[in-house]
Amino acid sequence: MKRLLAIVPAVVFAGLMVAFVIGLGRDPSILPSMLIDKPLPVFDLPPVRAADTKGLASTDFRGEPALLNVFGSWCVTCRVEHPFLMQLKAQGVPIHGLDWKDQPGAGEAWLVRYGDPYQLAGDDPVGRTVIDLGVTGAPETFVVDRQGRVRYRHVGAITPEVWSKTLAPLMTKLKAES
């Protein structure tokens, strides 16, 4: 009996180590989106650019797969991501922008200063839509298919590596879907 009891701590510890070894292989900062394979939450936002007649609505994601990019003029990483979005625009990738919690006019001033990669751009000054999307921080990008369903969520800046490894193949696949 005593011999058996003495072994218990070692056995429990061995189990624990196995769990930790498995746990080490994953990244705890990746949070799965609750929206994967679900339609975008319904929203209809006013335009960021004063000259636009139309902002951004969830119904705009129909017909062709597109990216939904959450940004803000206050967001430093968005500034880092921005030149690459401009490159994607040049390649003809459809990107729509969602301006998160900006002062009136700040989003537009930012786009004028650094360039505008967005086809449509909606303004969410109170952050209501962003909550519905479950965004944890800017920048964040959703890949939306031609039926308006969220297919992928990327947290953080899109880098050339992320694009070529993950997002570009997915976009190609979505384009091929009927």
């Binding site: 005593k2 003495a6 072994i7 701590p9 070692a10 510890f13 061995a14 930790f20 080490l24 292989g25």
Partner: peptide
């Protein structure tokens, strides 16, 4: 940093594992 994580886990596994094995062997 996963690389550091592996090293640390190895230290913990060896130290605590050896200690508990010794415990299981000697205490009875």
């Amino acid at each position: 940093d996963p690389k550091r994580g592996v090293y640390i886990l190895a230290i913990i596994a060896v130290m605590t594992g050896a200690a508990l094995a010794l415990f299981a062997w000697r205490t009875p």
